[in-house]
């Protein structure tokens, strides 16, 4: 868990509050940076589908039986190509 100590732990949040708390840093983060959080299994499911569908690259790493580290980053839309 040492490598995760600076990552915000959202595992106590209910689903809607999680969405709000997560969207706040996502809104402020530049497109080339990622946001990482720690969540429970049910919260992982809440995040994975909707954010993948709406243009985010979602990476999930299991860190404990019921704890996951999620990394979200805006996908490169290829607009520069």
């Amino acid at each position: 868990m040492g490598e995760n100590q600076d990552i915000p732990d959202f595992s106590d949040l209910t689903c809607t509050n999680l969405m709000i708390r997560l969207k706040m840093p996502l809104k402020k983060t530049p497109p080339d940076s990622a946001v990482e959080i720690i969540v429970r299994r049910d919260q992982r499911d809440t995040i994975e589908g909707p954010f993948s569908r709406t243009g985010y690259d979602v990476k999930i790493h299991r860190i404990d039986t019921n704890l996951f580290r999620i990394r979200l980053q805006k996908q490169d839309t290829g607009a520069d190509n």
């Binding site: 689903c15 809607t16 969405m19 909707p50």
Partner: peptide, 9 residues
């Protein structure tokens, strides 16, 4: 608002 977010989600 919370309910609306959940519905939309």
């Amino acid at each position: 608002l919370s309910f609306a977010i959940a519905c939309a989600h």
